[in-house]
Nucleic acid binder design. Sequence first.
RNA 1: GGAGGAAUACCCAAGUCUGGCUGAAGGGGUCGGUCUUGAAAACCGAGAGGCGGGUCAAACCGCGCGGGGGUUCGAAUCCCUCUUCCUCCGCCA
Length: 427
Amino acid sequence: MLDIKYVRAHFDEVKEKLSKRGEDLADFDRFGELDSRRRELIAQAEELKAERNAASQQIAEMKRNKENADEAIKKMREVGDRIKELDGELHQVEDDLQYIMMRVPNIPHDSVPVGDSEDDNVEIRRWGDVPEFGFEAKPHWEIGTDLGILDFERAAKTTGSRFVFYRGAGARLERALAAFMLDLHTDEHGYEEMLPPFLVNRTSLTGTGQLPKFEEDAFLVGEEDYFLIPTAEVPVTNFHRDEILDGGHLPESYAAYSACFRSEAGSAGRDTRGLIRQHQFNKVELVHFVKPEESYDMLEKLTGHAEKVLQLLGLPYRVLKMCTADLGFTAAKKYDIEVWIPTQGVYREISSCSNFEDFQARRANIRFRREQGAKPEYVHTLNGSGLAIGRTVAALLENYQQEDGSVLIPEVLRPYMGGKERIVPSK
RNA sequence: GGAGGAAUACCCAAGUCUGGCUGAAGGGGUCGGUCUUGAAAACCGAGAGGCGGGUCAAACCGCGCGGGGGUUCGAAUCCCUCUUCCUCCGCCA
């Protein structure tokens, strides 16, 4: 959520920056009217409440002296009714204002390129050499199925489309990647490991910004208002909801492994085969809580941590700076890391690293104190995938495939694979 | 799933039956000081958070005793509801 006071003071500037996102801002225009009506009502109601408080004291005094207070009580009854009316209208106005503000996206940072679509994202670097195959390379779902380590058909039987069984060396590879990533981030990059709940409540999804606008993207479980998490970002960011952190302990950095669940509403027909777009996948998510002045440095570091995973795995990738049209609802600035998928001849998103500034912190009420007794300030939150594991498996299978159908295992993963150097057909 | 109990400020905790003089006793911790070679202890002193309105900034005002709603001139205190936690019984990975 945006800072109401800031919006009040800089309305035209905010609106102009938001318009670069290509958002419909019709509702946003009601801000000024609602905001000033709100303050008007507060002033009126509070004046009457002050009057009531004073009168109540007098009535108490009179009662104690056994005097008759009927006159004062009668008068206050009317004041009370008037307060009730004003508070009623105030609630309505605040609900309306809240409705609007919860649906306004974050303001893009000045360093974000202005654009109309994903075509306007800016590539800022590439790493690694794209492999050349002396044979016809197979897509990862074929490799995986032929090796007997991925089973999409049986997953369709037990569950439905966009699900998969990993088996044998495939399941082990998944586990190896998760362990490798977590070890790297905790041992080398200084993160605290976390294993979060995979279900969250509505308040948490609102805190990180998935709700109220994007409810159709999430899976609702039962009637308990529990949602399957679309990313560990949600539980881990909300870990500190409604807290005031000690400034001396910042930044707080967490590496969380979790399953992620996405309804993929609106993606029907896209990436229907393989591991790229599943309803369920695993991911190691990196989450930071930092002081405002440190968040942009942290965004660069965070992106570097995700890149390091790909470098150690030897997978070619590129980094894109997302333009205003492709930022997502909550980010002020975002880098996507895309890994090379040989058979598609393109780079595909495998990580997304964002600085939300205080947008999530405001929604989730996460603050810090610079020192004892100081006023609480909102933290800045950031997160990035480090990495999405399903897509990493896809990239590994394709980039490391051999002419005989086997797949080489990158050296850094071999200790996690029982020393195995390659995956060969099980039969 | 059944039966009880609890939620007060950074922490512990009184007040709730008997509504008003309770922004809320007391203790701990915190901060400053005395003492000490230094520390601890002891003693003296300080401050009670947060949100909103208001202001150049203050003053000032309102809210606030888990959340929401109600009764009342007035609610930490009475009523309803929700959430969370605890104890016992049952079931269970």
